[in-house]
Design a protein around this nucleic acid. Structure first.
Length: 424
DNA sequence: CATTCCCGCCAAATA
DNA sequence: TATTTGGCGGGAATG
């Protein structure tokens, strides 16, 4: 009770606590001179969110080079300016991986690593949810480790490296290695986190280059037999990532073909100006080095936060208090802040528009060469990162082909429920 | 109804 | 062991 809300009926909105907004605030709070390291606890307190949330954004941010894990509870701040560098790095890495897997179609090495996500779905009888603790067996140590990036192979095979960070990287790579700048949610979902135990694939002739963007109808994991109930759940991670990424204007949410399915468009660094009412909207012809600025000045957020921080800090572990103390008040406060922010931030979620649009000469040069490589790679047919993805890709290519044909022949109503399962 | 995605339980990973 | 990380999916808000 006692919610009051005399001044304004704060209609609770999910937007107010989205990861995107959180990311924006995070950036606004730390992306400035003088910051060289951030503590998770402070961040959580400053932003008024639970620890868990910080992990989320920090993980995706790290994938883009904004942060770097330094130690427990500590990250070193690299800054937004480090993004292009990181992207370049990612691109190179992606291309490298592609070359490795280029000559596909024949998996000589026995290997036959099970790799990839779990789910497997052993025979077992369907149903039976409650809890899936029988996870073991399927996931034996070693297994995947499918991603290459520098080193890190033996040692503690990050059992954990299965999502978010990796997912983000792959997601970005997808854009970096493709000339198409738009990918639908479903496609991304399928490429990044689908993994049926399928083994078929043959990919005899990839005549088409990128099928993605020429597929007549959009793929929908909800109705894909290969997706099988589970896995569809992981799409949630994509949403998370997408939100954070779009808060930095690295990508944009759109629609594949006009009233079609949702998709993401790659904006890259120095995203797009978009209608942002911050400072000079479009007066400057050149993207003069106007430095990125996230909404120029934070709202009076700092004040309140500060006060709260202080009061809490006063003399004991903040988070302790936060946790045990009735969270409603804090939450309330927090909501107010976010609300304010959001208001000033237009109703689109973009708070800071163009940031650091100019590239260094060196970087430009590097980019150029990278671009060449990319073109080369593209003309040579796109291939995807991890072998896992490559496999998946070819596999789906086949599936798509059949679907395509089917659709082309019938060309009636939407293709629904295609008999494609049971590849073997 | 379908899509988007926040919340936070609880298990690995670490200190 | 205690704490830190962070999968994972229920289910509420939103379209």
């Amino acid at each position: 009770m006692a919610s009051s809300s005399l001044t304004s009926h704060l209609t609770y909105s999910r937007k107010q606590k989205s990861l995107g907004l959180l990311c924006t605030n995070f950036l606004k709070l730390y992306d400035r001179e003088g910051i060289e390291s951030v503590g998770l606890d402070e961040a959580a307190v400053q932003l008024g969110v639970e620890r868990r949330r910080i992990y989320d954004i920090v993980n995706v941010l790290e994938s883009v080079g904004v942060l770097s894990r330094k130690a427990k509870n500590r990250y070193s701040w690299k800054g937004i300016d480090s993004i292009p560098q990181a992207l370049e790095e990612l691109k190179k890495e992606a291309l490298r991986e592609n070359y490795e897997n280029l000559p596909v179609t024949s998996y000589e090495c026995q290997g036959d690593s099970i790799e990839n996500c779990e789910d497997d779905k052993p025979s077992d009888l369907s149903g039976g949810e409650t809890s899936q603790e029988n996870s073991t067996l399927g996931s034996v140590p070693s297994g995947d480790s499918s991603f290459c990036s520098l080193s890190s192979k033996g040692k503690t095979d990050h059992r954990r490296e299965k999502s978010l960070g990796l997912l983000t990287r792959n997601f970005v790579k997808l854009f970096l290695t493709t000339n198409a700048d738009t990918v639908s949610l479903d496609e991304a979902a399928m490429l990044l986190l689908c993994d049926p135990g399928s083994t078929m694939m043959r990919s005899n002739e990839p005549s088409e280059s990128i099928i993605f963007f020429s597929v007549p109808y959009v793929y929908n994991h909800m109705t894909d037999p290969l997706f099988e109930d589970n896995s569809a759940a992981k799409v949630r991670r994509l949403y998370d990532i997408a939100n954070v990424l779009s808060s930095m204007n690295l990508i944009e949410k759109t629609h594949q073909n006009e009233t079609k399915k949702p998709a993401f468009r790659w904006l890259g660094f120095n995203g797009k100006p978009d209608n942002d009412a911050t400072v000079s909207p479009k007066s400057s012809n050149f993207e003069q080095s106007k430095k990125r600025e996230f909404g120029s000045e934070i709202t009076n957020l700092e004040f309140v936060k500060r006060s709260r921080l202080i009061s809490l800090v006063d003399d004991k572990p903040i988070k302790e208090q936060m946790k045990h103390e009735d969270p409603s008040s804090q939450r309330h406060l927090n909501q107010m802040l976010e609300h304010q922010q959001q208001q000033q931030a237009n109703s689109k979620g973009y708070v800071f528009g163009p940031f650091q649009p100019v590239l260094q000469d060196t970087e430009k040069k590097s980019l150029r060469s990278a671009q060449d490589l990319e073109a080369f790679a593209s003309s040579y047919r796109p291939q995807y990162h991890n072998q896992a993805l490559s496999d998946l890709f070819s596999h789906y290519m086949e599936a798509w082909k059949s679907w395509y044909m089917e659709v082309a022949q019938v060309n009636n109503h939407q293709p629904k429920r295609n008999a494609i399962q049971q590849p073997s």
